[in-house]
Simulated assay, not measured.
Amino acid sequence: MPEFEANVTAFMLVKTTPEWLRLSVGERVKAFETEVLPVVKAKAKDVRSRFFDTEFYSARVTDVWVWEARDHEAYQLLVDALRETPFWDKYFEVVELLVGVENGYARNYGVEAVASIEA
């Protein structure tokens, strides 16, 4: 996918289900590649993702999926696509959705964004 400016970022906090954990690592990879990714790619354009394991530090949330989207419509299409796959409620319980706009306050007030490290 060509680079784009992500205008919407969603932190999807999820917890693995026993059904997902019963699968071998190979079966998990195959399930994700065949049951989830094709639907997301077909229906949700202009999104990219990153995945973070958190089960080492949290019992309530095992993973955080960060989705960056060009706009709110792209994000909404992503969620609709995910809901049509076994990802949603079969393999993972969606615990929380936190959606935001990076440095929205700076854009709204026309000020420089405050950051601890320059990008």
Rank of each mutant, 00 (worst) to 15 (best):
E93P: 04
Q76Y: 08
L78F: 15
T54C: 06
L77R: 14
D71T: 00
P86E: 03
R70D: 01
D71E: 02
Y75L: 11
W88E: 00
Y91N: 02
E93M: 07
E102I: 05
W67N: 07
D89K: 14
R83P: 01
F56E: 10
D53H: 14
L78P: 01
L77Q: 12
T62P: 03
A81Q: 01
L77D: 14
F52Q: 14
A69T: 09
A74P: 05
E102A: 07
Q76R: 08
D71N: 04
L77N: 15
A42N: 02
K43N: 14
A44E: 06
G100Q: 05
V64S: 00
F56C: 06
W65R: 14
V64W: 01
L82P: 03
L97I: 06
V39M: 07
L77A: 09
E73G: 02
G100L: 12
W67F: 10
V61Q: 00
S49T: 15
T62D: 08
Y57I: 04
Y57T: 11
K41F: 15
S49K: 13
V64K: 01
R50Q: 13
T54F: 11
F52T: 13
V47G: 14
Y57Q: 09
F51Q: 10
V101R: 08
A44F: 08
W65T: 14
R48H: 11
N103H: 00
Y75A: 01
T62F: 07
L77I: 04
F52N: 09
F92G: 01
R70Y: 07
R60D: 12
Q76E: 15
L77G: 09
E93A: 04
V39P: 13
E73T: 12
F51S: 11
L97A: 05
V40E: 08
L78G: 13
V47M: 10
K43D: 15
E68C: 10
W67H: 11
E102T: 09
A69H: 14
P86F: 09
L77E: 12
A74H: 03
